[in-house]
Design a protein around this nucleic acid. Structure first.
Lengths: 249, 249
DNA sequence: ATTCGAAACCTGTATAGACATGTTCGCCGG
DNA sequence: CCGGCGAACATGTCTATACAGGTTTCGAAT
């Protein structure tokens, strides 16, 4: 954990911190690069690297000649928060909770096998949980893992906490993830668990997670009650957006 | 337009191109930095800058010691595509269309004034359009502009094409934008225009656009028919995600 | 043949300096 | 008082070099 930070990480962390507590007001300028160089006894490289990070996070806007300014601020999200509902809650200051409906070991059907990039009928482990936000139903979670990942869950109490944490500490290597966001109507299960009418609009987030050598680790489907969660993104001219809108047609 | 590209932009464009046409297969390695240096007669700086861009777009994953690998690829989106439905369609190979319902000049109510960061009752220009994808209803668009921006629209035929293009060529400076994504049920207008039942789940994207000196330029609300559009995002361990999930509670 | 270890290679990090190009601000002249 | 020019300053781009800390590979010793 407490590994020493690199300079550019230290600078980025300092700026993120100062921005989030409004020490640098939205709309007005950050210290100039040369000031930051002095303050951190660093050359321009690390400073610019930190700036580039903040820019790609949508926190600041800069340009030739002008001072770098702070944008009206959207909190950023760590990788852990992207993957794990529990982590996200904790980062946002809420209390996560879960009520497990089922943990199943079964052979994969066509669609799931394709999503996990394995042979059809290979064994998979599926988890079906209702997730709570401060004790109130907020999301329905359907997780699917290939057996060599999911086997760590068969002896795990899925009501006790974060599956992600458990997988990490079991040595599973998660390197990157793809999320697809759309809207669906609540099906019968969703409706019952979230205590709404069938067909109620839900925000759906499908996620596939991969290890650094390309193996698919997870394929999941989370459905949020509207009002519980929404997604926010800053995009800056000249920085291509990593969020791409895709048509199904 | 045809300004000469900087080296790092040229390298990034080359790699994006090669990746998108699968000349570098998903899952396997990109040329090493030193190869790219040779190929582009450049030092490591520009090459690493290009890599950093692709990484923040979620296209590649790299790490100390290992080769840089191509992730299963999500097309990226230019800033124009973020702002403009017409641009997005064109980038995705579809034919955009529009049927204007109304263009209105009126005083802002409380909520809209707050969203546009102007005094209540200041005049605003609102545009209400049905948008088509290859001739089929796909999205309901509600755009709102402060008068000094919107005045360019009062004499513009909003059925003729891209409002964004028109504003740009009228000299409006758009620097960054915030998008918030959630799900809502279709209201009476949505339902009528999209030819679905009231309450049908729609994917809503609210957008606020800003100039480089912080003025709010636009506040909009787009509602997509499910199946027409979804959002996809790659996130890589160690790169904080610019897409942040926010709870309303 | 198998295993272990060192060399080769790769990306990450940092330094220092140079020049390009846009913005801001103040001085000076009209 | 105002306008315009220029200096100072800001960020963007590029080069060259060095070292750190991982992975891969291949050869030598067992």
């Amino acid at each position: 954990m407490g590994t020493t930070l690199q300079q550019h990480q230290e600078i980025a962390a300092f700026l993120r911190n100062a921005i989030s507590r409004k020490e640098f007001a939205p709309g007005e300028p950050l210290p100039s690069e040369s000031e930051l160089c002095e303050r951190f006894h660093s050359s321009r490289g690390p400073v610019r690297q930190a700036m580039a990070t903040l820019r790609s996070e949508g926190l600041i806007s800069s340009g030739r000649g002008r001072r770098t300014i702070v944008l009206d601020t959207v909190p950023t999200q760590s990788f852990d928060g992207v993957i794990s509902y529990s982590e996200w809650c904790r980062q946002s200051g809420f209390e996560p909770g879960q009520v497990t409906q089922s943990v199943t070991r079964r052979p994969a059907d066509e669609a799931l096998a394709a999503a996990l990039d394995i042979e059809p009928k290979s064994p998979v482990v599926s988890v079906f949980r209702l997730r709570l936000l401060n004790g109130v139903p907020a999301m329905v979670e359907r997780l699917n893992y290939p057996l060599d990942v999911g086997r760590h869950l068969l002896t795990f109490d899925t009501d006790s906490g974060s599956i992600y944490q458990h997988l990490i500490s079991s040595g599973v290597d998660i390197d990157n993830a793809t999320r697809t966001i759309d809207a669906v109507g609540a099906d019968a299960d969703d409706a019952r668990l979230l205590e709404v009418a069938e067909g109620t609009p839900l925000l759906r987030v499908r996620r596939r997670a991969f290890s650094s050598n390309g193996n698919t680790i997870e394929s999941s489907d989370d459905r949020y009650l509207p009002g519980t969660a929404s997604f926010t993104l800053n995009t800056i001219r000249g920085n291509p957006s990593p969020l791409s809108m895709v048509s199904a047609r």
